[in-house]
Amino acid sequence: MALSIADLRTKKQFADRLFRGTTLAGGAAILVILTLIAWTVTDKSSLVFKSEGLNFFTERRFAPSATPAVYGALSFIFGTAVTALLAIIIAVPISLGLALFTTHVAPGWLKRPLVALTDVVAVVPSVVFGLWGIIYLAPKLVGPFQTVSGWFHGVPVLGSLFGQVSAGRTFMTAGLILAVMITPIITSITREVIETCPEADQDGALALGATRWEMIRGAVMPHSIGGIVGAVMLGLGRAMGETIAAALVIGSSPALTANLFSSGDSLPSVIALQWGEATSDVKRSALIAMGLTLFLMTLVVNFAATAVVSRSMKRMQGVS
């Protein structure tokens, strides 16, 4: 009761500062966690870098039980890159088609169900796709793989890309499953970017007598291409980091080969699969170092993607 107005004000100000500080702490938590991730993971990887040096990145053999033990990540880095690229090559046309169909072809009543379709794909947990891939899809793929391999037998380049089929679990299988998993993210960003395309540009193209496809190619695509590239790179980052589905369907036998129908291995899958058997400190350190490698690879891709997306968003806001 004896509080003066001035007292009340300082008390209020204190509460206000406290609140502001709390929210700031929430935001700063992100920076703290990211720093801790980088620091602790690098710190624990140092053991393997001490014994292997930079050979870790160029050595293709990973033989922890050999004497002397060899720890090389090259074939896993290769597998990660190959499966992620395959996933992108398969997913990008499908996502583009899906996004364009939703925005420009589908009648009004069909738009919401189509958006919901991609959302549902995004909700299915990755381990469920992995389970479906390993038990249902992989055995069914051996036949089609052999057929394709037969077509290109003896053809240069294509013959080695689509070579001998070793099993249902291959680089290609992992690429297919990853493609399904990254389609929602590419589709939804692409759709948002396309929707920002100014109506006037599209109407102008149509008024000039363009067909719908010519309008998309001439008015929508030039406007949206930056954002789409960003979306694709975000998808690439996601495909590289997806662990469990890839771990289940890639076959887990490290290989450095051009043959997409061969079993292989990737960084996240070797970490997940070998972790339980990793009893020595050096082997654990090697697996953590692979995590670090994966972290850095996705970091580079995501940095680039974020930069591309934000730049094109800015440009588009300037336009409309």
């Binding site: 990211l34 991730i37 996601r238």
Partner: peptide, 16 residues
Amino acid sequence: FTTVMAGVPSIVMGLF
């Protein structure tokens, strides 16, 4: 950095 953190693979979070 929020966007960057959203892109960190889940397996790296586990290792961390």
